[in-house]
Nucleic acid binder design. Structure first.
Lengths: 198, 198
DNA sequence: CCTCAAGTTGAGAGGCCCCTCAAGTTAGCT
DNA sequence: AGCTAACTTGAGGGGCCTCTCAACTTGAGG
């Protein structure tokens, strides 16, 4: 790849990250091109689809989440690790409307990457006895969807409100709170499908 | 108003209710007109803005919610009343993607109407000791936003999944689950503003 | 310095949606 | 039956966004 192409790619990614962060994943692409000081044609040269751009813009996050997960597993108290992990992910969401949108389409079940770690975090916390035994990995989607919705609604007027939402959700996941759940968890296939359509 | 105008209004409302229910609040208006067998111009004659149409289409819901609230207050067990009310509202959301969208912009704090009843339901449940004492009316927005997000994501592939989400949320609202919350509740002004921008 | 593959450009076609308004139609009164 | 205010119509202008492609420019190897 020619070096000017590399540079343009980098500028596009930076502009995209900025605009995604400020306004969510559906910023017009021509605005990103303009912000990058590059023509719309170049944007399409470097990133043939919006998804390609989004993926490239947030490529680093997978590693970040993995770090969070490892850090969580390194904590002594399994429940606190669980809480720390979810809090960490939600902090990423709250800090970036683009990632907030993306997380809602990606949550939890992305078995491919470091998310296998999430299963460990969850199961360890269950073995520790503080996380209720009847929740599944797929239930984590509810947390992410919920917090994502709260972040979207409140980021302007009450940033940080999601922390209260998350705290309430976590209390609902604590073993001491457990009442029998009305229906079985979603299958991973269902969850995957649900994530797909936003 | 001329009787053909009345008839067209009615047809439009029916078409709108159907399409809103199936596809959410942002169906193209011309599609609604087409489904009603009427021109787009007529739609604009009857309903000058999208909001006017939405409001008319869901005018009955306020009464339904009030009924739910009264029914909840008539229950012996305050907590069960609280649960029944939230479940009822969420059932409305799950049954109609349009109302699901609308609820997310309307939740809880709409002091004007029968929602004053919601405050009663909540406070009664707190006095009863089963609803944690540190939650506020504004916290109900988290439940509605969360369930709305889950309904949107899962209605096709796992309808009913929201019941599990709601059950977990409710467990988090139960007094036995209460751990200190990290931040104070949103003010009603904040909540109102948050509801405004989606 | 020359060359050409690699890269850039931006106007424009196309899609979707909103909203208007001048021309045509009709209900319902007299 | 005639009249008029009320109503309907739908083509069309406008905005916004996506995506393409023929013409142009440039980096870098020889």
């Amino acid at each position: 790849m020619r070096k000017d192409a590399v540079q343009n790619r980098e500028r596009l990614l930076q502009a995209a990250r900025q605009l995604f962060a400020d306004r969510g994943l559906d910023v017009p692409l021509d605005e990103i091109a303009r912000a990058a000081g590059v023509s719309i044609g170049t944007l399409y040269n470097r990133f043939p689809t919006r998804d390609a751009l989004v993926e490239a813009a947030f490529a680093d996050r997978a590693a970040t989440v993995t770090e969070l997960a490892e850090h969580a597993l390194a904590m002594d108290n399994p429940w606190e690790g669980f809480v720390a992990f979810l809090t960490g992910v939600c902090e990423l969401q709250a800090a970036d409307l683009g990632y907030n949108d993306l997380a809602a389409r990606t949550a939890a079940v992305d078995g491919d990457r470091g998310y296998g770690l999430m299963r460990e975090i969850l199961e360890r916390a269950q073995r520790g006895g503080e996380l209720r035994a009847d929740v599944t990995l797929t239930d984590m989607a509810f947390v992410v969807w919920g917090v994502a919705a709260t972040v979207r609604a409140t980021h302007k007027v009450a940033p940080g409100a999601w922390r209260r939402h998350l705290a309430l959700a976590l209390d609902g996941l604590h073993a001491t709170a457990a009442h029998p759940l009305p229906i079985p968890p979603m299958s991973t296939a269902q969850t995957r499908a649900a994530l797909r359509d936003c």
